[in-house]
Amino acid sequence: MMSDVTTAPTATRAPALAGRVKAAALLFVLFALLPPLASALNDPFYVLIGTRILAYAIAAMALDLILGYGALVSFGHAAYLGFGAYAVAILSSYGINDMVLQILGAMVVSALFALVTGAISLRTRGVYFIMITLAFGQMAFFFFISLSAYGGDDGYSLSQKSTVLGTDILHSDYGLYYMALGLLAALFLLCNRIVGSRFGRVFTGIRENATRMEAVGYSPFRYQLTAFVISGCITSVAGVILANQAQFVSPAFMSWHRSGELIVMVVLGGVGTLAGPIAGAAAALLLEEWLGVLTEHWPLLFGLFLVLMVLFSPRGITGVLEKYGIARGKE
């Protein structure tokens, strides 16, 4: 009676892939036009929230890589945001200010953490997997809370923005914004390649029917663990951007609520579509901003929205759009 994790139709075929790239291209054009628009309106606030949206879009897309294509509901992905953010803080305190090195550092730590925790979590299924990833995320959270050298609970202010290969293009908000956009675009293309590759086909196949894949000669674990590590590494890039945007890092980046929000973004935009979660990140953050203007108790409305969405629109926003013929339905 219990269905498995909701899964979108596979997108391993070429036509669906092209459609997705087109949708993403449109999104990217919109993103690229935002800063000129903001400066025309003389409201730099849009660029700030835009940067946050881009960062979360990277994280949501990375989560979608395993959630959408592998049916792995990781509830601990905020940990990787934290690794990215703290990589900036810790490395810069040792004088390593270049974003390239910071991303590298974030990825190494994330890969190790994902390798160890993934190896344990992936031996389990269903609610177990969700709870265990959640617990490991919390473990990372507590680690940084007790890391008093970097402010512990209170967080840690960064004294400067990162450089990029020696240049200081991140010093302007616009520079950071376009850097984030560039990273998102590059990582989107990377993820697209991955899901359409040999590896992607095997990984998606395991989501479809793991026993069948074993019966033709694949050991699911190796592929799932690899994807888990890739997803963690990509997510950490988002943390590097967030730290630069806020000039501040704190364990709050990695609370389990943040992990939940990442899942919300993926589902809002459409599971297993890569481009969808990018839109989902924008939708979720804008909704939060908008509700935040209405009332200080905006989580109440956001929570209501979530519950109602699940109860009445099982397939998320995409489901609603399809219902009214706005988006392309299942082929």
Binding site: I194, G196, S197, R198
Partner: peptide
């Protein structure tokens, strides 16, 4: 049965 499945870039289709 033919080649590695740890190839991440080339379109399998």
């Amino acid at each position: 049965r033919s080649g590695s499945s740890f190839r991440f870039f080339a379109p399998v289709a």
